[in-house]
């Protein structure tokens, strides 16, 4: 049973999004996604300052089994990436919603945030996949 925190937003492609108090977003992959991928061994993160479009692949997470693209929830500028994943990609397996975060982004259009899935809608996506 995967963990889907109620206070986060989600994409149907299994990213999670936390809306911070200053309006910036923190993005990672869900517990369901890390579990499906298995042991992560390599993470490719974007350059800080890169301009992303909503739905654009911004990172690659690689498990022993496979490589998988991670998609940006919104358009905007990359503010920070989680450098700790370079040496310890397994943080995503151990702590997908906290220490395993991937990037922080400043959304260009706040309206895009309102189109993201809530926890119940994402739960339905996960259930439908089984």
């Amino acid at each position: 049973m995967s963990n889907i925190p109620a206070d986060l937003k989600y994409l149907s492609s299994h990213e999670w999004v936390r809306v911070e108090a200053d309006g910036t977003l923190t993005v990672g992959i869900s517990d369901h996604a890390q579990s499906a991928l298995g042991d992560l061994v390599f993470v490719e993160t974007p350059d800080v300052g890169r301009q992303l479009k909503a739905g654009e692949a911004f990172a690659v997470v690689e498990s022993v089994k496979a490589a998988s693209d991670v998609y940006s929830p919104v358009s905007g500028e990359v503010l920070a990436v989680n450098d700790a994943l370079g040496a310890t990609p397994e943080l995503i397996n151990q702590s997908p919603y906290s220490e395993g975060w991937l990037m922080k982004i400043r959304p260009g259009d706040a309206a895009e945030v309102s189109t993201l899935l809530d926890a119940a809608a994402y739960q339905a996506v996960v259930d439908a996949a089984h």
Binding site: G38, D39, S63, V64, K65, N93
Partner: peptide, 8 residues
């Protein structure tokens, strides 16, 4: 079965 827990 591809894995039961951690493949590593």
């Amino acid at each position: 079965p591809v894995n039961y827990g951690s493949q590593i």
